[in-house]
Simulated assay, not measured.
Amino acid sequence: MKTPEDHEREQAMRVAEYRRDAAPIDAQLRGLGEDLDSIILKRNLGLDYKEAIPILLTRLTTTESRVIKSCILHALAVPAARPLAGPLLIREFYRTASTCESPGTSVPLWDIGNALEFHACDDLADNLIGIATEKRFGWARAMVVLGLTRLKDSRAFNVLVNLLDDPDVNTMAVTALAKLKNPAARPHLERFVNHPDRWIRREARKGIERLDKAAARTGNAARPSGAPEGGAPNKKAKRVRIPRGLSETSVAIGMDRLGPFLKRVAECTAGMEFSTIDDLVETVDRLDNDRSRLFGYQVEYESTPTPLVIKVQKDDVDSVGIYFHTSAALVSRIEALFHPFCEEHGA
C-alpha cells in the first residue's frame, strides 16, 4: 500500500515531467509574456490570447507528450483559433489514428476529436462526416459526432439518425439530435425516452422539451406579415455599432449562465434592467449556431456614463462567447467578476 510520501514523490515526478515537456513551448510563449500554464488559465477564464495561437498550432504537431498535447488542444478550442485550427486538427486526427494500435479506444484521438467539435464547420463537413461514420474510430469519434450539430450541411441530420444504432456513439448521437431543435428529430428521440441508460434517457427527454418550447415560442411570437422580428411593423431596428476607443474583454460561458452573468454585470452598473437582459437571452437563444448579435446600451459605472456594447457569439445551443466593449474601468470590473462567478456556479 502506498504511503502519503509515495504519493507526494509520484506527484513531484509528474510535475517535473510536465515542466520538462512544456519547456520548448514555454520558451516560445515567453516572448509574449506567457507560458502554457498562463494560457490554460486564460482559456478557463475566457480571456484572450490570440497572439499565442500560431505557436500552439505549431507545437501541437511537434510535441510528443500526450499531456502537453492535451493542454494545447484544450487551449485551441477558442474562437481566435478559427479558421486555422480546423484543417490542422483533421490532419492530426488521421495522423494520430494511423499510429494507434486501437484507434477506437484511443484517448489522444478522443482529445483531438474534442477540439474538432468546437471547430466543426461546413468547410470541414466531408471530413467530419467521414470521421463520424468510420466505425474503426470507435468512441474516439464521439465528440466529432456532437460537432455535426454545428453544420448547416443537410447530410448531418441523416448521419446522426443513422448513428443512433451505433453502440459506440449512440449516446452522443442522441445528445446531438437533442441539440438541433429540428422537429423531424422527435420520433427518433422518442425511441430513447425510456432507454435503460440514464444519460441517453435524459438527453432524449431534454431534446423533446426543447422542441416543445420552440414550438410554443413560435406560436406566441406570431406577428403581422411584413413585420420585422422582435419589433413593430414597419419599424426599422436601430443598427448597433462599436464606438472607437473602447476597451474589450471576452469570456466563454454556457448558454444557461449567460443571463445570470449579465445580471451580475448589470448589478454593478446603472441603466441596464434585468428585463432587458431577459430579452437579450431570448434573442440569442433564437440564433443559429455560429451566429452573433450586437447589443448596445448606455450605462453608468462608478457615476461615469459609458457605452456598453455586448457581442454574443452563439457557438452552439449550450455555449456562447461574450465580447464586452466598454470603458477600461468597467472591463476590469467584468474580468474581476467572472472567475468568482464561475466558481459559484460551477461554470
Rank of each mutant, 00 (worst) to 15 (best):
D279W: 08
D279G: 02
D279A: 11
D279C: 04
D279I: 07
D279Y: 06
L280P: 04
L280I: 14
L280E: 07
V281W: 09
V281H: 00
V281E: 15
V281N: 01
V281M: 11
V281C: 14
E282W: 00
E282Y: 06
E282R: 05
E282L: 09
E282P: 03
T283V: 08
T283E: 12
T283I: 02
T283Y: 06
T283N: 09
T283S: 10
T283L: 08
V284T: 01
V284Y: 01
D285G: 05
D285K: 03
D285R: 00
D285F: 03
D285S: 05
R286V: 00
L287Y: 10
L287F: 01
L287W: 04
D288L: 11
D288H: 09
D288P: 05
N289Y: 07
N289H: 03
N289E: 10
N289I: 02
N289L: 05
D290R: 14
D290F: 07
D290Q: 13
R291S: 08
R291E: 15
S292K: 13
S292M: 07
S292A: 15
S292N: 15
S292G: 13
R293M: 12
R293V: 05
R293S: 12
R293D: 08
R293H: 09
R293G: 02
L294K: 08
L294F: 14
L294M: 11
L294Y: 10
L294R: 10
L294G: 03
F295T: 04
F295R: 04
F295Y: 14
F295M: 09
F295G: 02
G296M: 02
G296T: 08
Y297A: 13
Y297K: 10
Y297P: 01
Q298W: 12
Q298F: 14
Q298A: 15
Q298H: 13
V299Y: 03
V299Q: 04
V299L: 08
E300S: 14
E300A: 13
E300Q: 15
E300D: 09
E300M: 12
E300G: 06
Y301R: 01
Y301S: 03
E302R: 14
E302P: 00
E302D: 15
E302I: 08
S303P: 00
S303C: 09
S303K: 13
S303L: 10
S303W: 11
T304I: 12
T304W: 02
T304L: 09
T304C: 10
T304V: 14
P305F: 01
P305W: 03
P305K: 07
P305E: 07
T306W: 04
T306F: 03
P307D: 10
P307K: 04
P307W: 08
P307A: 03
L308D: 02
L308S: 07
L308R: 08
L308C: 05
V309S: 06
V309D: 06
V309F: 03
I310Y: 03
I310A: 01
I310E: 05
K311C: 12
K311F: 05
K311G: 08
K311L: 13
K311P: 00
V312P: 04
V312E: 00
V312H: 00
V312Y: 00
V312F: 01
Q313G: 09
Q313E: 12
Q313C: 06
Q313S: 13
Q313A: 10
